[in-house]
């Protein structure tokens, strides 16, 4: 029974990692850009929510509604004015610019909020739980997992059912030809990053309510997100969810054996998948 409990906790934790990863997956799918500052942007959004909570006395769930459009704007501006300049066949410039951005964000947060751990006040929901067939499941982890599924369903709908989604797919396939059809790739890219930042804000909400955070935890979140994307296979959002779940289960099982092995077990699971299926479990794009 303890093992079933551990695995279910792992699956629910995987929902959080899938939320971290969905934005990364979206941006990579459309413009082949890996944003090394992704984890730090999640942490940045968490601090933004914290700021709104403490300044306006809002509940974190309400604060997200204000933070989301701000992050949308941040994403749009970042892509439009910085990242679009470095997109191209050479992968070095975008990598180095986003790496620089990661270092800048971490240290700016350090200056602004100090290195102390923070937490978003979640109220009663943080400790609430429901009984399901003899298992005690936290409401917050369940909510996280449900949000991850909603985000993935939503993004898939956006991709395959809307005009914007068609433009995304066209630009992803061939930006130049899409341009000939009246699509402006630079705007499409900016919109994609802005939407990814909406997902980032949601991820930040759950990150901040479930555990302590400080300015330095961004890179580790980036790594989990990246592992989930790779395990799932590039271009598959449902694959990303599966990847997140695999990392989550590996971590909780590892931690159950020896608390020091939690993170290590997640990384090892990733390396094993990479060894057996180098293109991930559900590869779609040919990259």
């Amino acid at each position: 029974m303890i093992w079933i409990d551990t695995i279910i906790q792992g699956i629910l934790l995987g929902g959080l990692y899938a939320l971290f990863a969905a934005g990364l997956s979206l941006v990579f799918g459309i413009m082949r850009l890996v944003n090394l500052a992704h984890g730090d942007l999640i942490v940045f959004a968490a601090y933004l929510i914290l700021l709104l909570v403490s300044l306006l006395g809002l509940s974190p769930f309400l604060a997200v509604i204000i933070a989301a459009p701000i992050m949308f704007g941040v994403g749009w501006a970042l892509q439009r004015h910085v990242l679009n300049r470095v997109l191209g066949p050479d992968i070095l410039p975008p990598l180095l610019v986003t790496f620089g951005l990661s270092v800048v964000l971490q240290n700016a947060l350090m200056e602004g909020f100090s290195a102390d751990s923070q937490r978003l006040p979640a109220g009663d929901i943080a400790t609430a739980s429901v009984q399901v067939g003899g298992l005690n499941l936290g409401v917050l982890p369940l909510l996280t997992f449900a949000s991850a599924i909603l985000v993935i369903v939503g993004l898939n709908q956006l991709f395959y059912r809307t005009e914007l989604g068609r433009a995304f797919r066209a630009t992803s396939d061939d930006a130049v030809t899409a341009g000939l059809m009246g699509i402006r790739p630079d705007r499409i890219f900016a919109t994609a990053t802005a939407i990814a930042m909406l997902v980032v804000t949601l991820a930040a909400l759950y990150l901040g309510m479930r555990a302590n955070f400080d300015p330095n935890i961004g890179p580790a979140r980036l790594i989990y997100a990246f592992e989930a994307v790779i395990i799932g296979g590039l271009g598959s959002l449902w694959g990303t969810l599966v990847g997140g779940v695999i990392i989550g289960v590996a971590q909780t099982v590892g931690a159950a054996i020896n608390p020091e092995w939690q993170i290590l077990a997640g990384h090892l699971a990733f390396l094993i998948v990479l060894l057996i299926k180098p293109r991930g479990l559900f590869p779609r794009a040919l990259d």
């Binding site: 790779i230 990384h267 390396l271 060894l275």
Partner: peptide, 25 residues
């Protein structure tokens, strides 16, 4: 062997994961 399975940007984060694994080991 691991890292060369990854291309470009994924190589970058892949090498980072490997370094993390070594630190933890």
């Amino acid at each position: 062997f691991f890292a060369f399975r990854l291309q470009g940007a994924y190589f970058a984060i892949g090498t980072w994961v490997i370094a993390e694994v070594m630190r933890l080991l």
